[in-house]
Each structure stands twice: as structure tokens, then as C-alpha cells.
Design a binder for these strands. Structure first.
Lengths: 146, 146
DNA sequence: CTATATCGTTAGCAAGAGTAATGACTCCAG
DNA sequence: CTGGAGTCATTACTCTTGCTAACGATATAG
């Protein structure tokens, strides 16, 4: 069960192999998600869910996007009834975002649907392969923070 | 050195953990790439490099994109002198794509630049962690094909 | 109290993806 | 051999999302 290719022997080769695997898998996961919301919208909604009472500026910074882009995304999500904009308690320039019940519900469904496809693929792997991925997951997580 | 979190014990938990790791890392890698060409363009150019003499339709299927989208991408790459469109030998409806020398050169540079960031991060891992990723890479690759 | 800075938004532009429709060509049934 | 159905690439159009520049309201420093 040695799946190692010659590509992965050197460090540069490993970087190359990971790069293509990661981006292809990411594209694939995006395509498998439900189509009610775009990736951008899910990302923003998810960030609001994790850090409640965010302002648009903080959200834009978190999602690595310019404020005007986030303004539009927020406008859509608000129009769809998924989040609310309320005045900031002390600074009237600012706005505070929070999820609505519908937003929370939709986010959970979306997450479940997206993971369903991946879980299905994982079930087709051997136990050894699953073990390797279990060990790899936290390392990959750390790579994106570096 | 047990990096396993409680999240990764169940299969659904593993799927969830992998999903966020993969998409975050993908976003991060995209941001680190050189900005001479977009990800779409790099993807198309790379596919032509790997499977020479592709037609636009095959390329669109390979990149999981609709033909009209690929037509536009091809037009841009051709205008930039990175690939050429030539008539198909037997079927005059079709077109055959190939890389130019400039396209080949640019692709190699781009690849080197994008992988540099990831290779740097990999170098900061312990040898054990690198081993895990070496084993994980081909499994991840297979997941995206399923 | 004035000047500057900050925050969110609006306006306008470009890139990328999709669908529908078209034109050129191939191929098969009769 | 020919007429019609199917195939391939392209064009036209729409939608989403990103950016920058400019603005209007508000907060804060001097």
C-alpha cells in the first residue's frame, strides 16, 4: 500500500504535489456544495457565525477582501434574511452584524451537505489511508496559519 | 507528537476538519502566487502542458468548466502569446492547442514561485510531520478524482 | 472649534463563470 | 449521394465578485 510517487520524495516535489491536490480538491468541494449560496457568501456567513457581533470592516479583514466587496456581500445576505445589520452601541459610523435564525439554519445545512460528499469519498479509503489523513489534517490546518 | 484532535476521530469529524483545512490552505496558496496570470489561466496552461494537443472542448472538460468559458480563457492566453490554436488534422470543426516556448517558460516560473511559499512552510515541520504529508498527498489527489 | 482620520457605502470597471443561440462542419439513414 | 441530426467552437448576454476612487457621516485630536 505504498502510494508514494517519485514526486513526493523531495521537499519541492512534495510542495508541488500538495499544491495541485489541494487546489483541485478545493475546487471539487466547492462544486459539490449546495448551490443556494456561493462560496463567498458561505465564507462571510460562517465568519459571522464564529465571531458574533462583527463589523463589516472586521469581516472584510477576516475574509481578506476590501470593504466595498464585503458591503455588497452583506447586502445580499441581508436581503436574503440571513443576517442583520444593527447600529453600533457607541460609534454611529459602525454597524454590527449578526446571524438570523434562518442564516444559522442554512449554514448548518450547507456544511452538512458539503461534508457528505467528502465523507463518502473517505469511506472508500482503506483504514490505513484514513489514519494517514487523520494525522495529516491538523498539519494542513497549521500550514495555512504560518 | 499526537496532533490528533477530538474532531478527527470520527469519519464525519475528519471530513469537517479536512474541509476547512483544504479550503483555507487553497485560499492562502492562491494569494501567495505571482500575479502575472490568474489561477484559471495557470490551470488551463498547465493542462495543455501536461496533455499536449488538447482541443478546447477536452480542456474545458478537464478543467470542469463550460466550453464558452474556456474559449475566453484560451483567447486571452493566445493573445498573450502563451499558446497557439491550430487546425485539427482531420476534423475542421476542431482546434488543437499547444504551448508556445513563452508559455512553457512562464508556467515553470509561476509554478516555482507558488511552491516556494509552501516549501518554506514544509521546511518548518518536523521530519515526522513531513512524512505524514508525503503519504497523504497521493490520497488527497485521489479524493479529488472520485 | 476646526482639521484630520475612520467607517461604511456608492459608483464604475474588469475578470470569470454560466446559459442560449449560431455557424461551420461531420456523419449516418435511407 | 443527399438531407437532417449531431458535434464543436464561438458569440452574445447576464450574473457574481473583486478592485479603486470618491463621498458623506461621524469621531477624535489639537
Amino acid at each position: 500500500m505504498n502510494m508514494q510517487t517519485s514526486q513526493t520524495r523531495s521537499r519541492a516535489g512534495l510542495a508541488a504535489a500538495l499544491r495541485v491536490s489541494i487546489s483541485r480538491l478545493s475546487r471539487r468541494m466547492r462544486a459539490e456544495g449546495g448551490h443556494s449560496l456561493s462560496a463567498t457568501q458561505i465564507g462571510a456567513l460562517g465568519a459571522v457565525a464564529r465571531h458574533d457581533a462583527l463589523t463589516p470592516g472586521e469581516l472584510a479583514a477576516h475574509e481578506k477582501v476590501q470593504p466595498p466587496s464585503m458591503t455588497r456581500t452583506i447586502a445580499r445576505l441581508e436581503a436574503d434574511g440571513l443576517l442583520t445589520r444593527s447600529p453600533h452601541p457607541t460609534d454611529r459610523r459602525q454597524v454590527v452584524l449578526s446571524l438570523t435564525a434562518a442564516g444559522d439554519k442554512l449554514l448548518k445545512e450547507e456544511r452538512r451537505r458539503k461534508e457528505a460528499w467528502l465523507a463518502q469519498r473517505l469511506a472508500e479509503l482503506t483504514p490505513e489511508e484514513q489514519t494517514i489523513l487523520r494525522q495529516a489534517a491538523p498539519i494542513l490546518e497549521r500550514l495555512s496559519h504560518g
